[in-house]
Write a protein that binds this DNA or RNA. Sequence first.
DNA 1: CATGAATGAGTCTTCATTCAT
DNA 2: CATGAATGAAGACTCATTCAT
Lengths: 194, 194, 194, 194
Amino acid sequence: MSSTGRQRRRGDTRQRIQDVALELFAEQGYEKTSLREIAERLEVTKAALYYHFKTKEDILTSIFDDLTRPIDELIVWGGEQPRTLETKRAILTRYSEILTEAAPLFRFMQENQATMRDLKTGESFKDRMLQLLEILNHDDPSTPMTAQVRCFSALFTMHGGMFVLKGADGDPEEKRKAILEVAIDLVTQAHNGV
Amino acid sequence: MSSTGRQRRRGDTRQRIQDVALELFAEQGYEKTSLREIAERLEVTKAALYYHFKTKEDILTSIFDDLTRPIDELIVWGGEQPRTLETKRAILTRYSEILTEAAPLFRFMQENQATMRDLKTGESFKDRMLQLLEILNHDDPSTPMTAQVRCFSALFTMHGGMFVLKGADGDPEEKRKAILEVAIDLVTQAHNGV
Amino acid sequence: MSSTGRQRRRGDTRQRIQDVALELFAEQGYEKTSLREIAERLEVTKAALYYHFKTKEDILTSIFDDLTRPIDELIVWGGEQPRTLETKRAILTRYSEILTEAAPLFRFMQENQATMRDLKTGESFKDRMLQLLEILNHDDPSTPMTAQVRCFSALFTMHGGMFVLKGADGDPEEKRKAILEVAIDLVTQAHNGV
Amino acid sequence: MSSTGRQRRRGDTRQRIQDVALELFAEQGYEKTSLREIAERLEVTKAALYYHFKTKEDILTSIFDDLTRPIDELIVWGGEQPRTLETKRAILTRYSEILTEAAPLFRFMQENQATMRDLKTGESFKDRMLQLLEILNHDDPSTPMTAQVRCFSALFTMHGGMFVLKGADGDPEEKRKAILEVAIDLVTQAHNGV
DNA sequence: CATGAATGAGTCTTCATTCAT
DNA sequence: CATGAATGAAGACTCATTCAT
């Protein structure tokens, strides 16, 4: 109600919608979060949401567009590097940072895979994952299947970290490093043909 | 249409509801599957579902009760064994089989974590996972964090396999073995304090 | 509220929905009639309407299916007769009766052509009209254009009658006969090649 | 995109709104055309529409005011002439031209009668029609009812022409003449007391 | 063992309209 | 002359659930 609050808010409504939406989507899931809820928490009407976004899905998509850009850049960068172990290590390290920075988004994805599956955005995210896998994994048919599994496991473990990181005990940063270390280990073994 | 079809169905309606429900839940997600849909596919009325189950959640719960019993048994068995590497290897092997047999259920869980979170059933499943982790992981505070991560990664990778197993190429059974091998590897390293 | 009222209503809800819907559609137009309104007038909930009909359009369609059957029969009958003036006269006469019996429906159509245009039902009704025209009109390319216009005019005038019949003065039955007479006159002239 | 395009548009926005609105109203119906749609097609904002017109209905009304003036003039002129057949013929002829020139408007009216009914504009248009009818029809109580019907039919047929004129085959101008001829015929018969 | 009929609460979405700038 | 931002009311539709029969 404070006019200062109202004043401050001018012009950043779009951003605020995205923030609140992501928060709620991550907390309760996409389907179980209603636009009414988002609107209420923002103290605007549902119709205001529709001024800024065409559909509910559009809100989600816009969040992804912003937050997954770093991944796209990483993929491009990775594609240009020589496929050395060093490169892979760097990719995982950067990926770990990206994951941490956009943690709620990745937690959301982790927990709403069923929803993601029939969103256009979900499909395109899956594509990105596959591209990352390819870079880590060389598409060499002689690569043993276990090596492929290790690469996939590395990525998957990092994602899963989000889920476990919320489980209380232990310093989050320390955890993150442990996860990264294991992931690098896995990819290293794969790189060495194991 | 054949009266034999109808005849055969007598009495096993409860089971049929569970089967169809799991199929649809796994395919489309829990929230996006309506009771109307389930009823239609079974060619009964929605009210009939309520004759067999008290609520929608109850259907899901009943499916879990049936399909997660093997895990409970595994946990009990695991708890009684000496915590040797051999035991852990056996646990992972049996777990892999359980996962394969009840693949749709685990695919469902994997993709509907947000939903699981606020179902009683979900909570209790998570507990089971933690118990499994404990067995793999000794609760020794001197265990390095990376070892804990490796154990978690092993379990998580096996679950994730469901997701990747659907991706076409390669013999599923071969894939399953590769995943199991990597998981055992991870736990072995953890067991050795890495 | 009277339990008699409720009792009586059992089982005929579907019919009652159609009746009230047609009444309101004719009175206010299709778009301007909301399901809430229909439900309220029936003292049931909106959801009840959806138990009996899949969509709003479905309600309208079902009304048409019932009320336009006589026209289909007329077309079939007309198609089997020799294309004499006598036949045409009979068609117009029967058509006039059909129009009178289902007056609200035809009034609705007359006044909601824009709506009809993008309903499947509308399209199929238009087809029926064209078939009637063909019967009245022989598809002979040598027929002068004015003759074609006269046939169309005959049909159109009868439809328009609905609109004018509501205008107060004069006995409705007398009006109807006058309209029919003019229509027959028009078709007669057309039949004679004028 | 060209700044010339923008430049040219200066000042005639009001007119452009009317044009686009009529186009869309005729194409989709009044209720199914939203101000958003109109604004989008004009590449202005909805608020801009409100700068030029007070309400949605106001847009429609303004279109009518412009396009029905010729009818008013025709009525005035007709009222001053002697009620000879010659006059009536002239009225129909001019009316046919008016109809052709403002075809989209009349098509709109034809197809949106339900909407017209509760617009002030609609009422006043109906009045005009009745005035025209009176002129064609003398208000003589001894006039047989069929004569009245014929006059009404003449007018109605001309309106209906719009609807049929869109149906492809045949030269539109030729059709128009045929329709006019039939209309004159009808009024002639009425004039002769038939 | 099951259905037919219905409900209440809620979903996403669209609309005409307003007003400060 | 026009826009950006928002609102209140309403719309069609869906869902889990209930209960008399």
